[in-house]
C-alpha cells in the first residue's frame, strides 16, 4: 500500500514539474511573439508547413465526415419526416463541433508530429545548441514561428473542413437521397446563427494554441536521441488529442 502511495506521489510530482515547465516555456514563447511577428517571413513559412501541407488530408476528411453525416442524418430525420432539416443539422454539427475537433485531431497527427520531430532532430543534431552559440534564441527563431504557424492555420483549416463537410452532406443528401436542394440550403441558412460560427472559431483558435504549444514543447524538451524524438512525437499526438477533447468539453459547457 505504501508502495502505491509512493508511486502516486512520484507521479504527482512529475506531473507538477512537467506542468510547471510547460507553463514557463509557454510564457517564454508569448514574450517572444512580438519579436517574431516583426519577421513575418518566418511565420508565413510555418503557416505553409502547418496549414497548406495539411490541406489535402483536412479536405478529404471533411468530405467523408460530411458524407457520413448526410447519410446518418438523413436516416434518422426521415423517420420523423424531417429530412429537409438535413442541411441545418449537418451544418450546425460541423461548424460548432466536428469541424474544430476533427481538424484539431488531424492537425495533431499531421502537423503536430512534423513540428515535434523537426525540432527534436534539430536538438539531436546540435542545431539548437548552434543557434544558442550564435546568440540566437532558438525559442524565438525555431519555436515561436512554428507555434504561430499552427495557431493561424488551425481556424483556417477548421473553416475549410466545415465547408467541405457541408458540401459532402449536400452531395449525399441532395444527389443520393433526393432531399430537395432548395429546402436543404434554406433550412441551413435559417438555422445557422453567427454564434455557432464564433463558437467554432473560438474552439479552433483554442485548439490551435494547445496543439501547437504541445508540439513545440515536446520537440524542444525531448531527449536528443532517436528514441527520445520518437517518444516525444507519440506524446504530441496523445497529449494534443486529450487536450482537445477536454478543452472542447469545457468550452462547450461555457458557451452553452
Amino acid at each position: 500500500m505504501s508502495g502505491v502511495i509512493a508511486q502516486l506521489r512520484e507521479k504527482a510530482l512529475e506531473l507538477t514539474l512537467k506542468t510547471g515547465d510547460f507553463t514557463l516555456f509557454f510564457g517564454r514563447m508569448l514574450v517572444a511573439v512580438p519579436a517574431t511577428i516583426a519577421r513575418p517571413s518566418l511565420v508565413v513559412a510555418q503557416i505553409y508547413n502547418a496549414g497548406a501541407l495539411s490541406l489535402v488530408i483536412i479536405m478529404l476528411a471533411g468530405l467523408f465526415v460530411g458524407m457520413v453525416l448526410g447519410l446518418t442524418g438523413y436516416d434518422i430525420l426521415q423517420r420523423y419526416g424531417s429530412e429537409e432539416a438535413l442541411g441545418s443539422v449537418s451544418a450546425i454539427a460541423l461548424v460548432k463541433e466536428l469541424g474544430p475537433v476533427v481538424t484539431a485531431l488531424l492537425f495533431a497527427g499531421r502537423a503536430g508530429t512534423a513540428v515535434t520531430s523537426e525540432i527534436g532532430l534539430m536538438k539531436a543534431t546540435d542545431q539548437l545548441a548552434a543557434l544558442e552559440m550564435m546568440a540566437v534564441d532558438p525559442v524565438r527563431r525555431v519555436c515561436v514561428p512554428r507555434f504561430l504557424g499552427g495557431v493561424v492555420s488551425m481556424p483556417l483549416l477548421a473553416g475549410i473542413f466545415s465547408m467541405i463537410g457541408i458540401f459532402g452532406a449536400q452531395l449525399v443528401g441532395v444527389y443520393l437521397m433526393r432531399v430537395d436542394a432548395g429546402q436543404f440550403w434554406s433550412e441551413l441558412q435559417a438555422a445557422m446563427e453567427p454564434r455557432y460560427i464564433s463558437e467554432g472559431l473560438i474552439k479552433s483558435c483554442a485548439f490551435g494554441v494547445a496543439c501547437s504549444a504541445i508540439a513545440v514543447h515536446e520537440g524542444f524538451r525531448c531527449l536528443p536521441t532517436a528514441e527520445g524524438v520518437s517518444r516525444a512525437t507519440t506524446r504530441t499526438v496523445v497529449n494534443s488529442s486529450v487536450a482537445v477533447l477536454i478543452i472542447d468539453y469545457l468550452l462547450t459547457a461555457v458557451m452553452l
Binding site: 548552434a130 552559440m133 550564435m134
Partner: peptide
C-alpha cells in the same frame, strides 16, 4: 542573464563536432 549571455556569445565562435549546420 540570458540576454547578457547572448551579448557575450556574439564575441565567441564555436565549431561543433558534427558541424551542426541548419539543414
Amino acid at each position: 542573464s540570458r540576454s547578457q549571455l547572448y551579448t557575450l556569445r556574439k564575441r565567441m565562435g564555436m565549431l561543433f563536432q558534427n558541424g551542426a549546420l541548419l539543414t
